[in-house]
């Protein structure tokens, strides 16, 4: 049994794991993830999601040197956070200041009334990225089930 705390896999479902992303630009990538999540009924189609994700990216790219980006936004009327995981096999320029390509996208949608939880999810994601090898492992997965296992295993190592 897991000890109490923040775990990404608590908010990540198989339907929200999107392998084989194809977009070649940053806005197109975000829109591709949103469209696929709508198709998979993870989220409701809402222009606000793209707007808020883009607004955050305009403050500064969420791309990290490890080849992963953490696009995130706070939204009204979201009863609990939604986390989606995207993998792009070729990587794209997501705006990392030193030009590192981004292959993995951990999208975090939080409740506007609970920014504290959003902060904790971001901090936890940063720890997973720095303290486990899960980004490199995610680049190589071939099914959503495999991706979820990678996340779960990384969470176990961190616990």
């Amino acid at each position: 049994m897991k000890k109490p705390g923040i775990y990404l896999d608590k908010y990540l479902s198989l339907k929200a794991i999107l392998l084989n992303l194809q977009a070649s630009t940053k806005p197109a990538l975000l829109q591709e993830m949103i469209d696929k999540l709508v198709n998979n009924k993870v989220i409701v189609n809402n222009k606000l999601i793209f707007q808020e994700l883009w607004r955050r990216e305009e403050l500064g790219s969420t791309a990290l040197a490890e080849g992963i980006a953490l696009p995130h936004a706070l939204l009204p009327d979201l009863s609990r956070p939604i986390i989606a995981l995207g993998v792009h096999s070729r990587g794209i320029d997501f705006g990392h200041p030193e030009g590192h390509l981004t292959y993995v996208f951990l999208l975090i949608l939080g409740n506007k009334d609970d920014p504290g939880l959003q902060l904790r999810l971001l901090a936890h994601a940063c720890r997973l990225i720095k303290e486990t090898d899960f980004v490199n492992q995610l680049k190589q997965v071939s099914t959503p089930q495999e991706a979820l296992r990678v996340v779960e295993e990384a969470e176990r190592k961190l616990a």
Binding site: R56, G60, L64, A73, Q118, L119, L122
Partner: peptide, 10 residues
Amino acid sequence: VPIFAGLRFM
């Protein structure tokens, strides 16, 4: 820490 820029308001 750039990743937390969006939560400065907190």
